[in-house]
């Protein structure tokens, strides 16, 4: 993971989160929950992205697990 990227991203995340945190009083409760959820997911994502090749979360596998199956079906059809 590129360190410049990490520094910039963490700075951005902190800046936007603090900006939201100090202005959250003007927002509806539902809206606050959605924004908190997105920030929490971003923080979890940042932690798991440190583990290269998706060792932490196998999202790529999840998205692509049907790919070989479809390819096999196509080969069988043809």
């Amino acid at each position: 993971m590129n360190r410049l990227f990490l520094a910039l991203y963490i700075l951005m995340l902190l800046f936007f989160f603090l900006d939201f945190f100090f202005h959250r009083k003007h927002m509806e409760r539902k809206q606050q929950i959605v924004i908190y959820t997105l920030y929490i997911l971003s923080a979890i994502g940042l932690y798991s992205v440190q583990y290269q090749q998706g060792l932490m979360i196998h999202i790529h596998f999840f998205l692509n697990n049907m790919g070989p199956l479809v390819k096999m079906w196509i080969d069988q059809i043809l």
Partner: peptide, 10 residues
């Protein structure tokens, strides 16, 4: 912020 990390992971 969410899209940056999830795109890297996906």
């Amino acid at each position: 912020c969410f899209m940056v990390v999830t795109s890297l992971l996906a």
